[in-house]
């Protein structure tokens, strides 16, 4: 088990190193530099070069990356040359918003997808199954920038159930906070529903054909009991993987929704940083998202062990 954990950890570290290096390379390929952004459009090339030298931007990319890495491992992701804010401070200010949207979206997606999958799996290829697949296809094919205005119009403007835009932190109370988070989360969740529903349905259909499911039925247990107690858990592994990947993606990628609802989250932060060529901030946020991604996937791997004793046994051997 320890060997397994160490391997997992080393692989995660490698992923993070690669990501941070690639970000520096990609940003250096883009035209313009931080120095020119700081000094403005009227700066002379000499002044820009001078500032670049002071900031160390004229060194080789590899050296830049190493020096960034050296301070990053101490938890210091640098100071933004554009906003003069500590990158870590900026991230942790924005993180709660994004994290809440991502988690809420995941929960909404599961709450919709799991019942749809179990209903569909009861009679594979039946009318209900096909209907549900069609419905989730519709969810899948609506991009967030279309879903957002439609949902806002229906649920915020017409029904007045939720605010049209804006954010209410938890300090203003749970009710206003959840109401502000719900619509953005729903927009993101709808796309995830299709994948979740299909994966769980397929695994359930396979599991429901297993002998042990028949054996449980032969014991006289009710369909509902057999479904939840015997079939659900062994069918949930692929769903767990996909949900983990989704969560990682949502933490880094709710930009559109955050812009639309003007939410002060990580997406807005990184979008702003990219347009102002704030390399330090982009580097910091991307690194943070990569770490979160790796961490979530490690948790998913450990989760397998908790869900499936066969994995636990195989790993401990």
């Amino acid at each position: 088990m320890l060997q397994f954990a160490v391997k997992r950890f080393l692989r995660g570290v490698l992923v993070i190193l690669l990501v941070t290096f690639l970000v520096i390379v990609l940003l250096s390929l883009a035209p313009g530099s931080v120095a020119s952004v700081i000094l403005g459009d009227n700066a002379t090339p000499e002044a820009v070069a001078d500032l670049e030298h002071k900031m160390g931007l004229d060194r080789s990319i590899f050296i830049q990356w190493l020096s960034w890495l050296a301070s990053a491992v101490t938890g210091n992701l640098g100071v933004s040359p554009v906003t003069y804010q500590q990158v870590t401070t900026a991230i942790f200010e924005r993180l709660p918003v994004t994290l809440e949207i991502a988690l809420l979206a995941l929960i909404i997606a599961l709450v919709i997808a799991v019942p749809l999958a179990t209903i569909a799996a009861r009679r594979p290829e039946g009318g209900v199954d096909r209907g549900i697949t069609g419905l989730t296809s519709v969810f899948l094919s609506i991009p967030a920038f279309v879903a957002a205005p439609v949902l806002v119009y229906l649920l915020a403007v017409e029904a007045r159930l939720f605010p049209v835009a804006g954010w209410a932190p938890l300090s203003e109370g749970l009710g206003p906070n959840l109401r502000a988070a719900f619509l953005p989360a729903l927009c993101v969740a709808l796309i995830e529903v299709a994948a979740f529903q299909r994966i769980l349905r397929a695994d359930l259909v396979t599991t429901l054909r297993e002998d042990y499911v028949e054996a449980a039925r032969a014991k006289g247990m009710s369909s509902r009991y057999v479904l939840w107690r015997h079939a659900f858990r062994p069918s949930s592994f692929s769903l767990l993987t996909v949900a983990g990947i989704s969560l990682g993606r949502l933490i880094g990628g709710t930009i559109i929704v955050e812009m639309f609802f003007s939410l002060p989250g990580l997406g807005q932060l990184v979008a702003g940083a990219i347009s102002s060529r704030d390399i330090v901030m982009v580097q910091g946020v991307v690194t943070f998202v990569a770490v979160a991604y790796v961490l979530i996937n490690t948790i998913v791997d450990v989760g397998y062990g908790l869900l499936d004793p066969r994995v636990r046994l195989a790993v401990s051997r």
Binding site: Y212, A216, A218, K219, G220, S223, R233, D308
Partner: peptide
């Protein structure tokens, strides 16, 4: 279904061919 649930396991029980497939591996 109600009759099945009442009789299966209680009055009529079934032993399957392959015990490695008829016991739930995660329960």
């Amino acid at each position: 279904r109600a009759l099945h649930e009442e009789l299966w396991g209680r009055r009529i029980a079934l032993v399957f061919q392959d015990p490695s497939r008829s016991l739930n591996p995660v329960v």
